[in-house]
């Protein structure tokens, strides 16, 4: 049975969606970019970063966990929402340690790219300078906890895709942090470099060893086009 299709409106644009799609999925397909961090197209949504928050029928809701529905009226690209998202991104920056200029992910990092896209110049919030250590116990992968933004992508990937439970959160609120399911660090877990969990991190927290800085400046993923351009290109293609 073919899923029923219906329409909703986002920033004045009609979007066609099918039953079962979330707002963010329908918009992605239509070539409309909603900024996001924890959402990953190949993983079930978790709704924990709130970057994708839109005004849906007048209420603030996370687009990645809100099912699309007929007749919805959504505000996405507005000055107020952009500023709210910028504030969220800023908090993520100051809660960890993010020295982009020398970071292995620079130019390829979703947090950094979103900072640029949303016009974040320098954080206005005070830096927290947390003290976190690298877990380099695994022969092929290391965890740089300084960069973790607690998006839970790795937890979902490990459970749903890899059938393992390598990652989990411990603590709550500001004290929450990523943990692995072995006392002796990542090296003692079931983790392998080919796992899905090793490739979904939006920042430089889960990093494959010895493959860093191989892409020169100017050729990295976000050097030429801002984050979201790939999604927006679908719409441009369709229009022309």
């Amino acid at each position: 049975m073919v899923a029923a299709s219906f329409k909703f409106n986002i920033d004045g644009i009609e979007v066609e969606a099918t039953e079962g799609q979330s707002v963010i999925e329908a918009c992605d397909e239509a070539g409309i970019y909603i900024p996001r961090l924890c959402h990953h197209p190949e993983l079930p949504p978790s709704g924990n970063c709130r970057v994708c928050t839109c005004k849906i029928n007048g209420r603030h809701s996370a687009a990645c966990v809100t099912p699309a529905a007929h007749g919805m009226v959504i505000e996405n690209d507005t000055p107020q929402l952009t500023s709210d998202r910028r504030a969220v991104i800023e908090m993520l920056f100051v809660e960890g340690n993010h020295p982009c200029p020398y970071c292995v992910a620079s130019g390829d990092c979703e947090l950094q790219a979103l900072g640029y896209r949303l016009g974040m110049v320098a954080p206005t919030q005070p830096y927290q300078w947390p003290e976190r250590k690298i877990d380099a116990t695994h022969p092929d992968i290391y965890l740089d906890h300084d960069r973790c933004i607690l998006c839970s992508r790795c937890i979902r990937a490990s459970r749903m895709e890899d059938g393992k439970t390598v990652f989990g959160f411990e603590g709550r609120g500001i004290a929450m942090r990523l943990n692995v399911d072995a006392q002796g660090g990542l090296g003692e877990t079931q983790m392998a470099a080919i796992d899905k969990a090793a490739s979904v991190c939006p920042v430089a927290c889960i990093v494959i060893k010895r493959h860093n800085y191989q892409v020169p400046n100017g050729s990295r993923r976000f050097d030429k086009t801002p984050i979201g351009s790939d999604i927006e290109a679908k719409r441009t293609r369709r229009q022309s």
Binding site: P99, P101, Y102, V104, K209, R210, N212, Y213
Partner: peptide, 14 residues
């Protein structure tokens, strides 16, 4: 100390 060795050439210039 504690950083990954391949990061050093990039960190040191900063």
């Amino acid at each position: 100390c504690g950083r990954m060795y391949w990061e050093v050439p990039v960190i040191v210039q900063r």
